[in-house]
């Protein structure tokens, strides 16, 4: 029963907290998919990589697009190739199995080791997409209709699903998942995160930059408040440009790395001016 003893505690570069560890461990032990949500830029996708690294498993990533279908994750029956081959007499057309290609989910099921499967941005797909995967994720098995072959997971993969909440996920689907909402890091954790990314950086600059960053985030009516990844980028730019002063004022260097919407830049200027001019 090694699944009971494996525990996730984060990695050198991925810092966690008690809540996240509890969620990941629940998912590991109960063998349920872990659904991760949170603001963009809080490291949802990185979490899967960290879990794979910490548990020493291979990571299989399935990036979901608006055109993705649940079926694609299981297997694809390449009819066009078969049709083409039959016309020109190539390949072994009589064996359908030659034209069945396993998708990421199918690949994880048939693997000889336990894998980490990341289903990235599940909300990008059609509304029905998660429901189509219900049974497969629950039982960890599916049937290839064309060959009447049953594919059953030898080792149940650790499934990590990320979502930006662009679409609602069905209740039935949610019930089968362990849910974790990645909080926005508090100052203390943020300092540690920045130090992980920039180990050799001036302490004073970091403190000042973080201070400014939280001040900007605290501003009201920002449409897209800057997030962790933006702060890390910003500090990288500051470092390489040799900037030492990041006081909150009108000429904050490289503001564009933090605020990416025109209205937010206006709001920023407004609030610095002590405004309340948004009403106009």
């Amino acid at each position: 029963m090694d699944r009971l003893s494996t525990r996730f505690k984060g990695t050198k570069t991925y810092l966690t907290n008690a809540a996240l560890e509890a969620s990941v461990n629940c998912a590991l032990v109960l063998e349920k998919p872990l659904l991760v949500r949170g603001e963009p830029g809080t490291g949802k996708t990185l979490l899967a990589e960290a879990i794979a690294e910490a548990l020493d498993m291979e990571l299989i990533t399935w990036h979901i697009k608006s055109t993705s279908r649940a079926q694609d994750g299981l297997y694809v029956y390449d009819t066009v190739q078969r049709l083409y081959d039959s016309r020109f007499g190539e390949g072994n057309v009589h064996d359908i199995r030659n034209y069945i290609r396993l998708g990421p989910l199918g690949g994880a099921f048939t693997a000889d080791k336990r894998k980490v499967l990341l289903i990235d941005e599940i909300d990008k797909a059609d509304i029905e997409f998660p429901n189509d995967l219900l049974h497969e994720l629950d039982r960890m098995q599916f049937k290839i209709i064309e060959t009447n072959e049953e594919i059953k997971a030898k080792y149940r993969p650790v499934v990590i699903i990320t979502s930006n909440a662009e679409k609602e996920l069905g209740d039935a689907f949610l019930r089968r998942c362990v849910f974790h909402f990645i909080d926005f890091p508090d100052r203390e954790l943020m300092e540690r995160i920045v130090k992980v990314h920039h180990p050799d950086i001036d302490e004073r600059l970091v403190n000042q930059a973080i201070e400014t960053f939280y001040q900007i985030r605290a501003m009201q009516r920002m449409r897209k408040p800057p997030s962790t990844s933006e702060l890390v980028d910003w500090i990288a730019v500051l470092k390489s440009a040799g900037v030492t002063n990041t006081q909150l004022d009108q000429n904050l260097p490289f503001l564009g790395t933090l605020l990416k919407k025109e209205q937010d830049l206006v709001t920023y200027a407004d609030q610095l001016a002590g405004g309340r001019r948004w009403r106009s």
């Binding site: 008690a18 809540a19 509890a22 969620s23 629940c26 109960l30 949610l174 998942c177 849910f179």
Partner: peptide
């Protein structure tokens, strides 16, 4: 504390209910 986190992970499925 442990119970709080475990219960939260398993019971809540949506940040709106947190």
């Amino acid at each position: 504390d442990g119970f709080y986190y475990v219960a939260r992970a398993l019971i809540v499925h949506d940040e709106r209910h947190l």
